[in-house]
């Protein structure tokens, strides 16, 4: 069962756009120019893969796009709204409303059940009533095949199951953009395919832009667009 979808958002076809992003990491002599003027845009309903060797700046770019980090230079627009220069509160609000994250290491909150993990972003956004939140969380967990394990704690789920809960949680607030950092990096082949299929199906169904960083060439091949990176630039 698919969860109820929102009405298509009005505005530009792209959900996410960045221009000339620069980012340095480290300090002093260890300071490294990780991103050297990267530009990128992601349209709704499309799945993008960012690939490249370790240390080329894929994850750094993803965290900048997800407003988890600030660029040294350049612009980021979310749903047509320039976000790179906003204060922390505005960027946090935009994350909660427009962006869903899936991390490599699942990052479930292990003291909470699968259902509570999925409800957590909804509770913060506060758009739905508690009953509606619960209903949507159940529907999302159903859609990732975990309808029977909604009341299990994070510690009682396997790695693949935790990643599926993380996907359901990322979709909880119906974000326009889904960012995934090596979402299948920690999973076996069967679970990798399952998670990727889920991500792409749910995103396509809901008209969301999906940007994923991956080392897996098979996964990258199955995406709509593949963007290889090297030394802080798209090639």
């Amino acid at each position: 069962m698919n969860p109820p979808s929102p009405a298509p958002a009005a505005g530009p076809a792209w959900a996410l756009r960045c221009r000339g992003l620069h980012r340095h990491l480290g300090q002093g002599e260890g300071r490294v120019h990780v991103l050297k003027g990267v530009s990128f845009e992601a349209e709704r309903g499309q799945v993008y893969a960012i690939v490249g060797p370790s240390g080329c700046g894929k994850s750094t770019l993803l965290y900048l796009l997800g407003l988890l980090d600030r660029p040294d230079e350049g612009e980021i627009e979310i749903n047509g709204r320039r976000m790179s220069n906003h204060d922390d509160a505005a960027r946090t609000a935009a994350r909660g409303e427009h962006i869903g994250f899936v991390f490599q290491f699942h990052f479930l909150m292990l003291e909470f059940t699968a259902l509570e993990n999925v409800m957590m972003p909804m509770r913060k956004l506060g758009r739905l009533s508690p009953a509606a939140m619960r209903e949507r969380a159940h529907a999302l967990l159903d859609s990732v095949g975990l309808g029977a394990k909604t009341h299990r704690l994070g510690t009682q789920l396997s790695g693949g199951e935790q990643q599926r809960v993380a996907i359901a949680r990322a979709l909880a607030n119906q974000p326009a953009i889904l960012l995934a950092d090596e979402p299948t990096g920690n999973l076996d082949v069967r679970n990798s395919n399952l998670v990727f299929d889920l991500l792409t199906r749910l995103a396509k169904d809901n008209g969301q832009a999906v940007v994923l960083v991956t080392h897996n060439p098979e996964i990258a091949q199955r995406c709509d667009v593949t963007r290889p990176m090297r030394d802080g630039l798209f090639v």
């Binding site: 922390d88 509160a89 946090t92 994350r95 909660g96 409303e97 962006i99 909150m109 972003p121 949680r169």
Partner: peptide, 8 residues
Amino acid sequence: ILRSMGYE
């Protein structure tokens, strides 16, 4: 995680 989900 909380901050990525919109917690201030």
